[in-house]
Design a protein around this nucleic acid. Structure first.
Length: 124
DNA sequence: ACCATGACGTTTC
DNA sequence: CGAAACGCCATGG
């Protein structure tokens, strides 16, 4: 956290908040969170924020956040060897080869679930 | 101030 | 359909 601009702090906090809102047994993607925060182009920053959140005292279900392919790309950053996978499996999510099985079924999009889809036509 | 890196995503070959 | 390159934005050296 050192020298984080106000804007960054806001972004960081929102990322943690949204991640905490992910229901039990569900997963979301970095892109979905980024889009929900209005920074679709900064999907990488979501991972950056979550990475920083790991050292926070507040528990953040970062294991429920995967990349667009449903791959547990961040599992390498969790303590232990496959903590992320174990956490997901303990929630009823089946993981195979570092990828979430039936990813679409477990996918939880904040833009849809939170009903903030008013910013849909932002593409054009 | 510049270059290299990263828990991503999309486009191009 | 699979791999590579590019783009984004912030951090670290």
């Amino acid at each position: 956290m050192s020298r984080l601009s106000k804007n960054n702090e806001n972004f960081f906090e929102r990322v943690c908040e949204v991640t905490r809102l992910v229901p039990y047994g569900r997963v979301t993607t970095y892109g979905a969170i980024a889009r929900y925060l209005g920074a679709f182009r900064s999907a990488r920053m979501v991972g950056w924020a979550l990475n920083s959140s790991t050292h926070l005292d507040e528990w953040v279900p970062a294991h429920r956040v995967v990349n667009r392919n449903g791959l547990l790309t961040g599992k390498n950053h969790f303590p232990g060897s496959n903590t992320m996978q174990q956490l997901l499996e303990s929630e009823g999510i089946r993981v195979e080869d570092n990828a979430v099985v039936d990813f679409e079924r477990h996918f939880w999009d904040p833009n849809v679930e939170l009903g903030a889809s008013k910013t849909w036509q932002m593409t054009e």
